[in-house]
């Protein structure tokens, strides 16, 4: 049943974001694992469309914030304004008070603003002027960033990167998808026709189910071997943190749910590994490998160790 709903959602999303099924599935898995998603790509690759479509399909409130270098935390969180008539401060909530927030080009803002997002992402609440205010449930941040080498960017610090469950990139569309775009069929126009496929309650149930996926000792052993390798391999500056390990497990479980399985298998882990791990690893100076860092780990660690 849940599998069906998920398939339906993915099919819906596929109509809008053409030819990007793996990324769509990863994005779904990220939301099912209650994680935040970072999409890194060049401008104009369909990041915003994906975020918009996700909100529409899941039936979530949606706010979009364009991050700029002169943006202040108050612009994001909200501000108290003095109401002369009633002689008191009124709180005007910022765009963060929503269920799905698209933080567009997050690395254009200053670290100050970036870290204002931190508490919100981690705790599901914000503290403004000494008062703690809860955010709506569920709360997702879907951030996009331009590749860091582009001008006018403040790279996200490791601590903040670690708070994103996944980092994906969309990449160029396939030739067929591009042809459709060129033909003038604008997927954006389809956004309005998208139906939400599930209620909030259903989403919460799905998240519950993802958590309940059975992870046997063998798959946990595999995950631990992966983590251990990342910590010991001298080609990396540092290994995966325990939070990273937890992220890997919950993302893999969500993936298993999308695949319609009730138990976790190494393929699930391998499927989410690049998205979950790549932004958490950094090559050390004497290990500049041509292949992706995650592939080094995946190829070296035995799936089954007798």
């Amino acid at each position: 049943m849940s599998h069906l709903v998920l398939q339906q959602s993915i099919a819906q999303l596929g109509k809008v974001v053409l030819g990007k099924e793996p990324q769509i599935k990863l994005a779904m898995a990220c939301l099912l694992a209650k994680g935040h998603l970072l999409i890194e790509d060049l401008p104009g690759m369909g990041k915003t469309t994906l975020a918009h479509a996700l909100a529409a399909v899941l039936g979530l409130q949606y706010q979009r914030v364009q991050f700029t270098s002169d943006m202040l935390p108050a612009d994001l969180l909200g501000i108290s304004v003095f109401d002369a008539q009633n002689s008191k401060f009124d709180f005007h909530p910022g765009p963060i008070f929503t269920q799905l927030m698209l933080a567009d080009e997050i690395n254009r803002s200053t670290p100050k603003t970036q870290s204002a997002l931190l508490e919100a992402m981690e705790e599901g609440q914000v503290s403004i002027e000494g008062e703690t205010r809860p955010l709506p449930q569920p709360f997702f941040v879907l951030a996009t960033q331009n590749p860091v080498h582009q001008s006018g960017t403040f790279p996200l610090p490791e601590s903040q990167l670690d708070r994103f469950l996944m980092r994906i990139s969309l990449g160029y569309p396939s030739a067929a998808a591009e042809r459709m775009l060129l033909k003038g069929i604008n997927p954006r126009s389809l956004l309005k026709s998208l139906q939400s496929t599930m209620s909030l309650q259903q989403l919460a149930d799905l998240q519950e189910q993802a958590q309940a996926i059975h992870a046997s000792d063998h798959v946990l052993d595999y995950v631990q071997r992966l983590i251990q390798f990342s910590r010991e391999y001298e080609g990396f500056s540092y290994g995966i943190s325990p939070r990273g390990a937890l992220a890997l497990i919950s993302a893999a479980k969500a993936w298993a749910l999308i695949e319609g399985r009730e138990h976790l298998i190494p393929e699930d882990v391998q499927a989410v590994m690049p998205a979950v791990m790549e932004h958490r690893l950094r090559a050390s100076s004497h290990g500049a490998a041509a292949e992706a860092l995650v592939d080094i780990v995946l190829n070296a660690v035995d799936v089954i160790q007798g």
């Binding site: 298998i265 190494p266 393929e267 391998q270 995946l298 190829n299 070296a300 660690v301 035995d302 799936v303 089954i304 007798g306």
Partner: peptide, 22 residues
């Protein structure tokens, strides 16, 4: 699985570490 792996190894097929059984 180990039994199968042993049989295949005898036949000259060795699994790469990162390879899943399938």
């Amino acid at each position: 699985w180990l039994e199968l792996e042993k049989k295949l190894a005898a036949g000259g097929w060795i699994r790469e570490p990162g390879e899943t059984p399938q």
